[in-house]
């Protein structure tokens, strides 16, 4: 048992040390796994802002993950085929530059979040869960029949996109990029939750009427949190697409929305590093159990059940002595 602050530091250091060790030991696949953890964690950090801070149970966050992925896929596809992207009023060239792709991913996710958030926040509780799920399904079926970009087959990008000054094809360097992004976003989240906005949001989640009494609009606070949350998950989508060098409609699937939510709950809702722990444990289980038996889903399910029954507040909640910032 230890303070959550030390636990967070320990988690991030572990996530950093494992791939460095793997790099020295020439085990590139371990680096790939760690990169996967970092990116999935980033997606879940995004959801955690809506879920943990804002109290918005979104079962449609795959929408933003997919949008980020397709931002990468579409831009890199046009760059790869040397064709221009026709936007109706004007055309632009594709790009293989990660920073530009990230900007587009964040921007398009934000636009989608404004629309989905504005409509979904009219509802609450289970209805909110379900309307976000419905938006996810709409995007999923749209992507499947969007034949320009491969439909269900998705889009393959042969080479990973470029980042100035680094060779992204080398696993450890791409990991460094993902880890840096994750760390920055975690710092951002810590800052946000301590800011006036974060405190008001926290209050809006726990006692909306009191927040209203001091003249704030809880729905508006949640709306902002939803957009912030979506952009982070969108950014993770772009990185995930780059990790796999591939995008497909499965990034929009409801199962994926469910998986990101499992990461958050597994790690600990509202805990800063909860999503990182959740994603790491999930990827590890998938990797270890998948090697043991054909029917590994049964064991995964049983382990998740045990965690729900005995580790309320997720793994971080179980390990940390203090209640944490939003326990």
């Amino acid at each position: 048992m230890m303070s959550e602050r030390y636990l967070n530091a320990g988690v991030l250091i572990a996530l950093l040390i494992v791939p460095i060790w793997a790099h020295l030991a020439d085990a590139p696949y371990t680096i790939t796994l760690a990169t996967r953890v970092a990116i999935l964690a980033l997606a879940a950090v995004g959801l955690n802002i809506a879920l943990g801070l804002g109290g918005l149970v979104s079962l449609g966050h795959a929408v933003f993950f997919g949008i980020g992925g397709y931002a990468m896929g579409v831009l890199a596809h046009h760059a790869q085929t040397y064709t221009a992207l026709d936007l109706g009023i004007f055309t632009v060239d594709g790009t293989k530059s990660m920073p530009i792709i990230w900007l587009v991913a964040v921007g398009t996710s934000a636009v989608a979040a404004v629309i989905i958030g504005a409509l979904s926040l009219r509802t609450s509780g289970v209805y909110f869960i379900m309307i976000t799920l419905a938006f996810g399904q709409m995007f999923y079926y749209f992507a499947i029949s969007w034949s320009t970009y491969g439909g269900e087959d998705g889009l393959s990008i042969y080479l990973r996109n470029d980042f100035p000054g680094l060779n992204t094809l080398i696993p450890i360097q791409f990991f460094a990029i993902c880890f840096a992004v994750l760390s920055l976003v975690l710092l951002l989240q810590a800052g946000v939750s301590r800011s006036a906005f974060g405190l008001a949001l926290n209050a809006a989640r726990q006692a909306p009427t009191r927040v209203e009494a001091v003249g704030l609009n809880p729905k508006r606070l949640q709306f902002v949190a939803f957009i912030l949350s979506a952009t982070i998950t969108g950014l993770a989508g772009a990185l995930f697409a780059d990790l796999n060098r591939f995008v497909s409609p499965s990034m929009f699937s409801w199962q994926f929305s469910g998986e990101i939510m499992v990461f958050v709950i597994l790690g600990g809702v509202g805990r800063l590093c909860g999503p990182v722990v959740g994603a790491a444990v999930f990827v590890l289980l998938e990797h270890v159990l998948g090697g043991l038996t054909e029917f590994w889903h049964i064991y995964l399910g049983l382990i998740l059940l045990i965690i729900v029954q005995f580790a309320r507040g997720g793994i971080v909640g179980l390990l940390a002595t203090d209640r944490g910032q939003h326990g």
């Binding site: 590139p28 696949y29 790939t32 796994l33 996967r36 998705g154 995930f240 796999n244 060098r245 591939f246 497909s248 499965s250 990034m251």
Partner: peptide
Amino acid sequence: PDVAVQLSDK
């Protein structure tokens, strides 16, 4: 697909 890609890397 994403699991397949991951396994292919492995």
